[in-house]
Simulated assay, not measured.
Amino acid sequence: MTSNWGLSFKLFPENAALWGQTSQSSIYAGSIPELAVDGLLNSWTHTNEETNPWWRADLLKAYRVNRVTITNRPTYGSRINGAVIRIGNVPDIYSNAICGVISTLANGATATFSCGGMEGRYMIVHIPGSQKILSLCEVGVYGTLAGNLAVGGSVIQSSTSANWFAEKAIDSNRGLQQLYMGCSSTLNETNPWWRLDLRQIYRVNQVVVTNRKDCCAERMDGAEIRIGNSLEINGSKNPICAVIPAIPAGESYSYSCGGMEGRYINMIIPGDMKMLTLCEVEVYGEGMT
């Protein structure tokens, strides 16, 4: 068994806006809202000239947002002056809390705004006032999934393939944009396993598992999700919440565990010549009273 406890390495936080859905108040000359998350510095969104133009990212799940990055377009950068950044759970532009205000931003420059873990499903940029145009080159939203118990836990796996460390399955990066960086993986072995220690006992209602996107989706086939308090045989004696027959590449599947009690979440694939790869594991539940 190879352990990676205490191992130091660089995580690659995923821009949650890439995973979500974008929209804006209006579209000028084909400058659609998706251009703010295409990774290109030679394209940008553009609204019509209007009152209170806005751009919105629906992250699809509530995040605790640590920071937002805004990259201005390389020309006519003054159009972003006065833009307000909001985070919250209401799609309406004015109902959510303010993370930051862009007073000015140079052409082509990137500014970072600390949001201090503000919780929300929606990230909105808008410019108050009449006869305004909102144009964004790139937008980044970085944080952790709100309510995900896995974020505060610690992990270990039976072995580690290259730099596919166990911790990468709980870094809030589903591994869909940074291939070969955002997922965990064991070696090819007998009964490979991955284990999350929640540090205390919870009633687990739901486990969400995301499969890798680039290839080899079948490596997760047959994985058992076990929940309990035993470390006997690396947790393989704990009760089963679910068995994963298959998860399509790049997809996230949710498994209901009905309040099973346990400190440990084990993912195990029984059999010889198996490899366990996990791009993200989310755990939702309540503490014991």
Score class of each variant (00 low, 15 high):
residue 101 V to M: 11
residue 132 K to F: 07
residue 127 I to W: 11
residue 117 G to P: 05
residue 129 G to S: 00
residue 124 I to V: 11
residue 121 R to L: 15
residue 131 Q to G: 11
residue 102 I to H: 10
residue 125 V to P: 08
residue 115 C to G: 09
residue 119 E to G: 10
residue 133 I to K: 00
residue 102 I to S: 05
residue 111 A to P: 01
residue 112 T to R: 10
residue 123 M to A: 13
residue 114 S to K: 12
residue 128 P to S: 03
residue 122 Y to C: 04
residue 126 H to Y: 15
residue 116 G to S: 15
residue 102 I to N: 10
residue 127 I to L: 06
residue 131 Q to C: 11
residue 99 C to T: 00
residue 123 M to R: 02
residue 102 I to Q: 08
residue 110 T to C: 03
residue 124 I to W: 04
residue 119 E to R: 03
residue 108 G to P: 05
residue 114 S to V: 12
residue 135 S to A: 12
residue 123 M to S: 07
residue 128 P to N: 10
residue 109 A to H: 08
residue 134 L to W: 00
residue 124 I to L: 04
residue 109 A to V: 11
residue 103 S to P: 09
residue 123 M to D: 08
residue 116 G to P: 03
residue 107 N to L: 05
residue 110 T to F: 05
residue 131 Q to M: 12
residue 105 L to R: 06
residue 111 A to T: 12
residue 120 G to A: 08
residue 112 T to A: 12
residue 122 Y to W: 02
residue 127 I to H: 04
residue 108 G to Q: 05
residue 130 S to R: 14
residue 132 K to N: 09
residue 133 I to V: 12
residue 120 G to P: 02
residue 99 C to Y: 01
residue 121 R to N: 15
residue 100 G to N: 08
residue 106 A to D: 15
residue 123 M to C: 14
residue 130 S to P: 10
residue 129 G to R: 01
residue 105 L to I: 15
residue 131 Q to Y: 13
residue 109 A to K: 06
residue 111 A to D: 12
residue 101 V to L: 07
residue 125 V to S: 07
residue 134 L to F: 02
residue 110 T to E: 07
residue 117 G to N: 08
residue 114 S to H: 12
residue 128 P to K: 08
residue 106 A to P: 08
residue 105 L to N: 10
residue 104 T to M: 06
residue 108 G to I: 05
residue 107 N to R: 01
residue 134 L to V: 02
residue 112 T to N: 06
residue 106 A to L: 13
residue 120 G to E: 01
residue 103 S to N: 11
residue 109 A to S: 14
residue 123 M to E: 08
residue 128 P to G: 06
residue 118 M to V: 06
residue 106 A to R: 07
residue 129 G to Y: 01
residue 130 S to C: 11
residue 123 M to W: 12
residue 124 I to H: 03
